[in-house]
Design a protein around this nucleic acid. Sequence first.
DNA 1: CCTAGATCGTTCGTATACGAACGATCACCG
DNA 2: CGGTGATCGTTCGTATACGAACGATCTAGG
Lengths: 151, 151
Amino acid sequence: MKPDLRTIQGNDPADSYRLEDQVGYWLRRAYQRHMAIFAGVMSDLDLTSMQFAALVKLRELKAVSQTELGRLTGMDRATISGVVARLKRRDLVLYKPDPLDKRSRIIALTSSGEALLADAMQRIGRVTEQTLEPTSAAERESLLATLQKMG
Amino acid sequence: MKPDLRTIQGNDPADSYRLEDQVGYWLRRAYQRHMAIFAGVMSDLDLTSMQFAALVKLRELKAVSQTELGRLTGMDRATISGVVARLKRRDLVLYKPDPLDKRSRIIALTSSGEALLADAMQRIGRVTEQTLEPTSAAERESLLATLQKMG
DNA sequence: CCTAGATCGTTCGTATACGAACGATCACCG
DNA sequence: CGGTGATCGTTCGTATACGAACGATCTAGG
């Protein structure tokens, strides 16, 4: 069915390499499109998808240390540091000292953080809907399962 | 099989929202892991996946304008500008004037660019292999097809 | 109690990412 | 031919992303 291009073109794997055949390329493209959809739906809230992820986790857990919040949302120390700082600057989150560890900084939602998040959560379904719009229900299930294995 | 959490927890879609159920979250995770694998395999070449993508396209097309190269690799004007500048600084690519358009800048591989790319292309299979390692052959085909629809 | 190693959050350096504004140029239309 | 809108690449501002080095603190072991 599918001819082996290496046989046709030679033994060097480089000869048959095309960007458009690579998972990495399409992972990036799909993620990129998802981000653009997110930005569009949330544009008037001025909220990035990473900021949203952090707020969602805070809503779920009430209060976590900054590094732990990073772990839960998939951001390293240095990255979550900036994300949280920008949320703090807008008074969407606040800092609390950790009575058990002076190194640690506990992060929690403020009421305006909760309010903004509530608004964003009303819209998040549209983001997923548009992201997955080109796919069938079966594809969606399979995609999610496969991505979870890979993550 | 799967209970509708909205029915159990209330009517607000926010109540049933979990980061871990979202495509966007897993797209990011999978892409992130792919990037880490790429960086590991290519570490001694000091080549990012975006730089690699640009070099691959240049090898395929011999010479393209900078903006066109960006389009083909999925980077906007501002981003490809920096990527190409860093490749130029390392003499992996060179600039040529476009005889037909004074605004345009034609980019092409240098011989050291070709050499480095040849090395990278010998390894790229390992990157894909490791990225897809947790998945079956059927899942790989399905994943690629679905991502392509979404991209 | 006291030190070696782990962990917390910061900062720096580098590399994407992308919207917006800019000057130069191009293409097309009247 | 002259002007208007589109396109080329740059620069700026902002937001991730992440390795590395740092000071402060915590933990475990002796």
